[in-house]
Design a protein around this nucleic acid. Sequence first.
DNA 1: AGCTTTGTTGACTGGTCAGTCAAGAAAGTT
DNA 2: AACTTTCTTGACTGACCAGTCAACAAAGCT
Lengths: 177, 177
Amino acid sequence: MRTFWERGYEGASLSDLTEATGVGRQSLYLAFGDKQKLYLAALDRYREHFFLPLVEALSGNVDVRVALREAILPLVDGSCADDPRGCFLVAAAAERAGEDSAVRSRVTAAFAGLETALLEAAQRSRAAGLVADTVDLTGWAALTVATIQGMRVMEAGGTDRATLIRALDTALAMLHP
Amino acid sequence: MRTFWERGYEGASLSDLTEATGVGRQSLYLAFGDKQKLYLAALDRYREHFFLPLVEALSGNVDVRVALREAILPLVDGSCADDPRGCFLVAAAAERAGEDSAVRSRVTAAFAGLETALLEAAQRSRAAGLVADTVDLTGWAALTVATIQGMRVMEAGGTDRATLIRALDTALAMLHP
DNA sequence: AGCTTTGTTGACTGGTCAGTCAAGAAAGTT
DNA sequence: AACTTTCTTGACTGACCAGTCAACAAAGCT
């Protein structure tokens, strides 16, 4: 997973993958079929280990703003030091979604899942009186998914931390009652 | 440019490039040096032909909301039918920014340029009384750059048109007086 | 026209690619 | 222990990769 994450689909050779996994070439082929299926498995693993935790973190606090900020800031800080930069799902969307429909459907599903989780977290926050009644939460959820993915692109692209945090905080500030 | 845009850096072979350009292999090497420099030239061409027009479109109407919506909607509609999906700059950020600092600096500069243009356009709109005084325009500009890039990722990832437009419209709605 | 410079062509290089194969080791079964 | 099945290994394949080379054509200049 890490190898595909760091180097992309085309950039990761089978030799890179056997070296990184410590698993022989033929074993990989017997276990996964071919490179594309191995890539999908890596993507699924990323989703499970890095994306779903983010989604679940949204229910960790009554206030979406606190929950989301706490979940996203470490990513922007790069403080998860030994993980590659940027988001594997974003890279997959950019590099492979056009050519591989299995990648596309996983990416679409992941983004939709995040949007739903954001909406529900926002609704819970509203129920707790933490969010203004005037805000269109469905719209806010769509906006916030796009903002998060955009932040991940800009993060990979070298945009400074302050700008990214400002973007996030502005999205969060919308909710203020 | 179109070949790199469609297939990415690693995905576009020199044979693809000579075929697409109609220019011989050696001519490309004499003119550009190597594949990396050719990629940079393609990126510069994209910036000039597709990104700067978007930036300039922001001064095409006193109301940022109208200007931005008119500029972005065609991209989301894919009505620019013969252009590849997604944004070349986003793909470059995801695939190459980590490995090629020249790509990174171009991407960073492009995003920063869009942010500045958004800020100035929003300020002009405010001067015309079209934007609420309470909105933090700097924050809004940062948010909107991230949102646009996120939309481009999600567009490539197969997210439906309606969700993307909703995200954009929510960012625009923030400005309402 | 004769000569220099510039551009073009297609064959070629060493290296790497994804994927396969066959031989051997390990583990499970009776 | 004998045998079958599963897993692992490293050598191998044809294809393709970025980049080079030398022969050739076109154009510019005197």
